[in-house]
Each structure stands twice: as structure tokens, then as C-alpha cells.
Simulated assay, not measured.
Amino acid sequence: MPSMKLDAGSQFPEMDFHLVGGAMVSIGGARERWTLFIVYRGKHCPKCKTYLNKLEAMKGDWEAAGFDILVVSADPETKAKADLEEFGWTFPLAYGLSERQMEALGLYISSPLSEAENDRNFAEPGHFCISPSGVLQITCISNGPAARPDLADLLAGMQFNIANQRPPRGLA
């Protein structure tokens, strides 16, 4: 069970990540654009690959709607780089999500079922839509790979929220 949850309408915590390829990226705080931040389970998860391939196909739609994208896992750089090379994703891919960061994001953390699955604890899926002011608009966390928001529905909902200046929900 997550140790805490991020409250909708709160400031998203500032975090730094290494991107495959060597650059650093920060999340949280004020930005010029909205952010779609996705946490995936890692190289061992075939459902993640299917989901991230759908994200790649919709990347232009998200960007046209005013979103920057960042995807991260707990994997080391070698595994994240292998995924990037195999699937040809063009969105920024970060690695090395720590357990402390997982906890700060309110994510479910799983231990590997075998060495074939993974060699470390990893985060279950998490999705966060963050406003340019750094406020968490939408959060969706799952305790397993089968439950994730449909990316087209999420985008349509966010476009509606932005166009109608809807506040974050679930505050009461």
C-alpha cells in the first residue's frame, strides 16, 4: 500500500532524474507547459511496452495539447537504454526512480517474484498531469500492470479541463 498519496491540487514534489543519454531532467515546480509524468514498472513488464508504444503513437497529440512528457522507471540505465533502443521511443525516458521517490509519489512498490522478473523493488504504474504552475491536476496510481488510464480518454479529459479552466477534483 502506498505510504502516502499526493493530494490533487497540491504542489507536485520537485525531483531530478537522469535521462537515457546522460542529461538530467527536473519535474515539479513552475513550467511553461503542462506535464504528463508516467511511472512504468520497467523492462521486465510486457504490458508497459504495449502501453508506452501507445504513448509514442499519441506523443504528437499530447504535445499539441500543450504537454511535455516524461516517463521513468526504477530500472538502471542499461535496462532503460535497451528498451529505448528496442522500441524507438522518442519521448524523454528517465531511469533510477528511487524507493524514496516512489514513496513521495504515493506509488505502490513491489518486490520481484523472481530474479527473472527484476533484481530490485520497482514501482507499479503511476500517472500524473501537472499544471504549468506545478499543481497536480490528475493522479492515477495502480497496484498492478493491468490497471492504467486509457491515454486517449486521459488526453480528452485534460483538454476539456484546460479549455474550461476546471480545478483539480477530489479535494472535498
Rank of each mutant, 00 (worst) to 15 (best):
40 Y>M: 05
124 E>I: 02
77 E>N: 14
62 W>E: 01
81 K>H: 03
20 V>E: 12
84 L>S: 06
54 K>T: 12
33 R>F: 03
82 A>V: 00
41 R>V: 02
63 E>R: 10
48 C>R: 10
44 H>Q: 12
57 A>V: 07
121 N>F: 02
38 I>V: 15
96 G>H: 01
22 G>F: 09
56 E>G: 05
31 R>Q: 15
78 T>P: 00
52 L>T: 12
58 M>K: 13
49 K>L: 13
92 P>W: 04
87 F>M: 06
110 S>R: 14
20 V>Y: 10
98 S>V: 02
32 E>A: 15
54 K>N: 12
19 L>D: 09
54 K>W: 03
18 H>N: 14
130 I>A: 11
49 K>Q: 12
46 P>N: 08
79 K>N: 14
21 G>M: 05
95 Y>P: 04
114 S>C: 03
120 R>D: 02
108 Y>V: 09
72 V>M: 02
73 S>V: 07
66 G>A: 05
91 F>R: 01
76 P>Y: 12
130 I>Y: 09
122 F>C: 08
64 A>I: 04
40 Y>H: 15
67 F>P: 02
20 V>I: 15
65 A>D: 01
95 Y>T: 07
18 H>E: 14
56 E>V: 05
25 V>P: 05
120 R>F: 11
81 K>S: 07
125 P>L: 00
49 K>C: 07
31 R>W: 04
66 G>K: 03
97 L>F: 04
64 A>K: 13
93 L>W: 06
92 P>F: 06
106 G>F: 03
28 G>D: 13
49 K>S: 11
116 A>F: 08
122 F>M: 08
68 D>Y: 04
53 N>A: 12
119 D>L: 10
107 L>T: 01
100 R>Q: 12
40 Y>R: 13
120 R>G: 00
14 E>D: 06
20 V>G: 11
52 L>P: 09
111 S>D: 09
31 R>S: 15
106 G>V: 05
121 N>T: 10
93 L>N: 13
82 A>G: 01
74 A>P: 03
58 M>E: 14
118 N>H: 14
78 T>A: 13
23 A>S: 15
126 G>K: 14
30 A>N: 11
31 R>Y: 04
50 T>E: 13
22 G>M: 08
79 K>W: 03
28 G>S: 10
68 D>F: 06
94 A>F: 07
53 N>K: 13
118 N>V: 00
50 T>K: 12
37 F>E: 08
24 M>C: 10
36 L>I: 05
62 W>V: 01
123 A>I: 08
23 A>W: 00
76 P>C: 05
23 A>C: 03
83 D>V: 07
61 D>H: 11
22 G>N: 08
55 L>R: 05
111 S>I: 06
76 P>G: 06
29 G>L: 10
120 R>T: 02
93 L>H: 13
58 M>Q: 15
15 M>W: 03
80 A>Y: 00
55 L>H: 02
100 R>L: 04
20 V>C: 13
27 I>H: 11
114 S>E: 00
111 S>W: 06
61 D>W: 05
60 G>M: 07
110 S>Q: 10
103 E>G: 07
